[in-house]
Nucleic acid binder design. Structure first.
Lengths: 348, 348
DNA sequence: CCCAAATATGTAATCGTTTACATAGAGGGC
DNA sequence: GCCCTCTATGTAAACGATTACATATTTGGG
């Protein structure tokens, strides 16, 4: 591999001058500048970023710690991060990790000397244990918050989104509305449940524990929860699944049970994943701007980095939006306008 | 930040000994070992990977260059890579890049000193221009091949998969089978087209240029191609879309045109993305093991790295599998068994 | 009891950069 | 002609680790 020394020798200049030319720092005569450029180009010299970052103590890299995410969510959040990172001259070091305290600590330690900051997404962690991360580099918490104000965080407007969706169900006449919850240890799930309850209370509807079913964000959970719900003597007329995957399971179970959606049972989800519009009937959901989630997390992180982690901590939220389709009734048959679907779902 | 020197000073030992303890290299007395461990732990010392990789010239990091991929494909291929990389103690440095020669070169240059090897996925590039990548570090080409034997590559068994799908259509009685192609500059698309033609020829069916429509892997392309196809005086009875996204567009267009699938028109796709089974009717497709694609690409790269890039180059393919659902007819109503759908599509 | 081998530790070079400081020559004001 | 200020360049010290080599101590065989 050709190093800066080789270039210097070949150009009969000192490494300092070569470095200055390559970084555009310090005064260099136009003549030498041209010479060195020419030599470096001819020798195909490429600076060694590792060496550079050792001396500058800047890696121009952001660490990203993710739990085991699937599908659209994963790719879209990374897309948002990468777009923002690249625009600021940063790279992304991605690592999936167990979402427990030890896994995260290990992963963050491994980032030392590799990244200038880390985005940690760990919805399954209770806030407490994240409090004193073993880190002197900036950290942004994604989809979870720390108890104190110690760490920047970015979350989804879960509570408000859920509240609006349930309010919508109430507005089209439902009174018995079931929810399929996510894991109680999951921050997003907990907040969505809170929004559901809040909305019912606001409408003066009594909470019924029988209508709150356990779930874990999988299609299977949605499926089996439905079987329990329709066995109730006093059936709900609407089901709010805490995410779209479970809602898909719900639709599947209802179809098999011969229960018409939305006529006999309204169904709503959360996330508005791309599949939602293709379901039969198209699924009403709470839209989450995933790209924005990633982009803003990186913005937050970059802010922490430029301020050397010595800045007032922020807590931000990305806002959600209600997307009403046929599964909740009250809306004429909507069909997706294909001309606008410009995305390659799988490009290959 | 506490360095190895700080630890050495605190433990009243030399940095060499500290290093030896931390790396388990060289002989160290049990007593010193314990002491140093204790001190390092107490001081919360974390080795600086940047410095380490400078001297060892190993970054334990793999670069990944991806085009602008969406959805399941992106996340699944990264999942496969990360699983394999982590199992071998490597990290993943991910970068999306323009898939043209310049973009790739720049990106690979930026990897110098950051990664020990690079996986380059660039289906849109013609092989030629990839030939002499400016790289001394190992490179694996994903979903494209170089002309010579210069670079390791891993591709999808596109041709065979397409051939089998078309053969299936023929076997259930179709003779007029249309294809919606991908971009001609796309390697996968070209190979799928080749498989389609091969299959028809094998069955003694004349190729009809009118039945080969342009497409670009988007839903919109599938949609508009259908409009042309059904306007033909001699309509096809089956449509093979070169990927699932276009097949979804096809289904959408047929539904609007009141053409029954599969009775009046059979439809098949390629990739078998998760949506496929949820379509109405469920979409027959050619399954591509995306996780495996990522995993094996990394295996290939690691092989190149351990052999210091001085190894016979390989060309490998991941094999596809026919997945017949209702959209091609000839199969009883299949419903997805929800109990086995264990995945969180969107976990949040 | 001596010497070789094994064990434990230290010293210092090295990886490929950046950059503070030093140096040297040129130009200009007085 | 002197001194100061620029400009252009070079020297060498970092950055934080690993490791070859040197050194000192212990062990054990004869």
């Amino acid at each position: 591999m050709v190093t800066i020394k080789d270039v210097a020798r070949e150009a009969k200049m000192s490494v300092a001058t070569v470095s200055r030319v390559l970084n555009g720092s310090g005064p260099v005569s136009e003549e030498t500048r041209r010479l060195i450029r020419e030599v470096a180009g001819r020798m195909r010299y490429v600076p060694h970023s590792g060496a550079r970052s050792l001396i500058t103590s800047k890696t121009q890299t952001l660490g990203v710690l993710l739990p085991d995410l699937y599908g659209e969510f994963f790719s879209e959040v990374i897309r948002g991060m990468d777009d923002t990172a690249q625009r600021n001259g940063f790279h992304l070091l991605i690592s999936r990790a167990y979402a427990d305290r030890h896994g995260i600590e290990t992963a963050i330690r491994a980032m030392r000397g590799r990244a200038d900051g880390v985005v940690v997404m760990s919805p399954d962690l209770d806030a407490e244990s994240l409090l004193n991360l073993p880190s002197t580099i900036p950290v942004v918490l994604l989809c979870s918050v720390s108890r104190g104000n110690e760490i920047d965080s970015l979350t989804i407007q879960n509570c408000r989104g859920a509240r609006e969706m349930v309010a919508h169900l109430i507005s089209v006449g439902h009174r018995r509305i079931a929810i399929i919850k996510g894991s109680p240890r999951n921050y997003d799930a907990a907040e969505r449940l809170r929004g559901y309850r809040m909305s019912l209370r606001e409408a003066g509807i009594m909470l019924d524990p029988l209508l709150e079913r356990e779930g874990d964000f999988t299609e299977a959970a949605g499926y089996s929860a439905v079987l329990k719900l329709i066995a109730l003597k006093n059936r709900p007329t609407a089901i709010f699944a805490a995410n779209d995957s479970m809602a898909i399971g719900v639709l599947s179970a209802l179809r098999e049970s011969g229960i018409a959606v939305p006529e006999e049972m309204a169904v709503a989800g959360f996330d508005d994943i791309p599949l939602a519009r293709y379901m039969d009937p198209p699924l009403s959901s709470v839209h989450v701007p995933i790209w924005e989630l990633g982009a803003r997390a990186v913005d937050l992180l970059l802010h922490g980095i430029t301020h050397k982690n010595d800045h007032p901590r922020r807590r931000e939220r990305v806002s959600t939006k209600l997307v009403i389709r046929r599964s909740t009734g009250g809306v004429p048959a909507e069909r997706p306008p294909p001309q606008t679907l410009k995305r390659k779902l799988v490009s290959v």
